[in-house]
Design a binder for these strands. Structure first.
Lengths: 140, 140
DNA sequence: GGGGCTTATAGTAATAGTTCCTATTATTAT
DNA sequence: ATAATAATAGGAACTATTACTATAAGCCCC
């Protein structure tokens, strides 16, 4: 197994990626740290951060998140898709892109002249089903 | 002038909003701080942060930015539109939504069942025209 | 399958953007 | 004007992330 582009296959890197792939919950760096620590108790948080950044840079995973949440979240699936962010619990869910969205994600937008698109991102903010059920709502 | 929803009209708040509206550059909190300080030399950075958050919460301005940039940026225009984020210089430009995008922004997405959408966000990451011209490129 | 080059790691310190705290001041309703 | 209440300045605290450095581990070639 070679990770690509001269990334060495270290035990830390392998287990980090394994753990990330176990979940669709888009965990934060420290959640990933906690998970990996169960197998590698001596791993450093800095190693987790370094590798998450590196793997995202190489396109093997993706960084997700919004401007409002302080912490970054990661998605094991590097393929373009949309995310729904709960403004209450911070949870992130995958959204299956419709054909129209897929067209957008591939970059067919007029007003973008001269801006070279590397990635398009569509995010929805709102309440996830759980929070929706328990949030106090205005009745107006 | 009343700001809405029991927000008091303080000198700080008024000038902050004025300054923000002077620019389409989507400034950061500290850039706004610097601009406001020219008129209000004794304003506190905490005041700037507090008000930016408050105004965004009330829907009078909007928070923009991506998970990769550490600092938040703000847009005086609260109406839904898209943004192009330069991955090199961090600059943000407004993108005029096409009709199809507008449909998305209004919330017509299938797979979102049970997730209550408060806002949709479409962001493009890439190189702005300036950076595009000066970034060293691979010729492959 | 061992030597040596090179990259990665652990552990910790440092950074930076943001938020919190509290005594004081300003705004608004009356 | 006065009283009630919300907002501010200034600085301390917080926290996610990044930087640093001596040590350890992959990997390539023989």
């Amino acid at each position: 197994m070679k990770l690509e582009n001269s990334l060495r296959v270290t035990r830390q890197r392998r287990i980090l990626l394994e753990q990330l792939k176990l979940s669709d919950a888009h965990p934060t760096a420290s959640e990933i740290f906690d998970a990996v620590r169960k197998e590698l108790p001596r791993i450093s948080l800095a190693t987790v951060y370094r590798n998450l950044e590196l793997l995202a840079e190489k396109g093997l995973i993706q960084l997700v998140g919004t401007a409002e949440s302080r912490q970054k979240r990661f998605d094991w699936n590097p393929r373009p898709h949309c995310h729904a962010h709960c403004v209450r619990c911070g949870g992130v869910a995958d959204i299956e892109p419709s054909p129209e969205i897929n067209a957008l994600l591939r970059g067919s937008v007029d007003s973008l002249r001269d801006f070279e698109v590397l990635a398009a991102r569509i995010d929805f903010l709102g309440y996830c089903p759980q929070c929706r059920a328990t949030v106090p709502r205005c009745s107006e």
